[in-house]
């Protein structure tokens, strides 16, 4: 009996071209069960369907990139059990998860060289939640290397305008940003403070943030880079971390997007250091959620801001190490 059960763990099952073991099935089942129980205890069971959809898509994403069932099973469980997602509860979760799903589909389609589909997925992500625009630099990078056609901008504009109409018709908030809070998450404004100049820092932060994005894109466009899944995700993660660090009015939901990207990159990529980096992003995201919902964190938020900055620098160094400069006229 013991040997039979032990043998069962490694017995492979095949569904189409996908093969996995009972161990993965057990992991998925127990992960789902635990996630459901935690949400039930927290009174946030209604968020489970949205998170399951995201977890499934994350697992599919990891499998498409790695072709390894064990990693995709781990991705599924991780995405269901991320503390910040558990804590966030049921607040606007369906649109957030749908937007995240479309962002993952956008990256997958871009990697598979289906430019039109990628453009449509990104437009859909923006339609669900304008915060998906934080991934816009990656979109620009893909247009630049002609993985997405130029008229993809029209499709994106369509998604944006569609969102505007939707908000007008149903009286919903457009951006979901709380403009009274400049330090919704631990970022640069936590470190330097805003004092009496919150309004000015808010506007200047957007302008200087745009300048930083412009400069980094200018540098990125000077180099050659391949549109492989890992490379695309690294670019996406870097810009998510950069924007959440330097832009004002960032909310914990924006950092959750970076958190998902970080963990998928850690599981789908080859860089081992991404695992502690993803852990750091999760810590920052959880701290932001705790600060928002419980108004209390065990460490000063400045510590998490420094951690966020450190992961940002690490993500930047990964991109710089991959770039090969285009030859330039003397």
């Amino acid at each position: 009996m013991d040997d039979y059960l032990r043998g069962l763990i490694d017995r492979k099952l095949h569904i189409g071209q996908v093969s996995f073991t009972f161990a993965e099935i057990a992991l998925v089942l127990f992960g789902s069960l635990l996630s459901g129980m935690i949400r039930f205890k927290m009174g946030a069971l209604s968020s489970l369907p949205a998170d399951v959809i995201l977890a499934i898509l994350g697992a599919v994403f990891v499998y498409c990139v790695t072709k390894k069932a064990e990693r995709s099973a781990v991705a599924y469980c991780l995405l269901l059990l991320l503390p910040s997602f558990l804590l966030a509860g049921s607040e606007k979760r369906m649109t957030e998860c749908l937007s995240l799903c479309f962002v993952l589909l956008f990256i997958l389609c871009a990697w598979k060289r289906k430019g039109m589909a990628a453009a449509v997925c990104f437009a859909a992500a923006v339609f669900c939640q304008p915060a998906a625009l934080l991934v816009l630099p990656l979109y620009l990078a893909l247009v630049h290397i002609r993985k997405i056609p130029l008229y993809g901008y029209l499709i994106l504009a369509g998604g944006f305008v569609g969102r505007l109409f939707f908000c007008r018709m149903f009286g919903r908030g457009f951006s979901g940003i709380d403009r009274s809070v400049i330090t919704g998450i631990a970022n640069i404004y936590t470190l330097i403070g805003t004092g009496n100049y919150e309004a000015e820092y808010g506007k200047a932060g957007i302008l200087l943030g745009a300048a930083a994005l412009l400069g980094s894109l200018y540098m990125l466009f000077q180099a050659k880079y391949e549109a492989k899944a890992e490379g695309l995700m690294e670019i996406g993660l870097f810009y998510l971390l950069l924007e959440t660090f330097i832009l004002p009015y960032m909310m914990p939901s924006h950092l959750r997007l970076a958190e998902v990207m970080a963990w998928l990159l850690a599981l789908a990529g080859t860089e081992r250091k991404m695992i502690p980096a993803a852990t750091a992003v999760s810590l920052c995201s959880f701290a932001a959620c705790t600060h928002l919902y419980a108004a209390d964190v065990p460490l000063p938020m400045a510590a998490f801001a420094l951690l966020h900055g450190a992961v940002l620098l690490f993500a930047g160094s990964r991109i710089v190490s991959r770039m090969v400069r285009r030859p330039e006229h003397g």
Binding site: T190, L191, I192, G193, T194, G195, N196, Y197, P300, A302
Partner: peptide, 8 residues
């Protein structure tokens, strides 16, 4: 200077 003290 600007905020009358540092955040930390």
């Amino acid at each position: 200077y600007l905020h009358g003290g540092c955040a930390f």
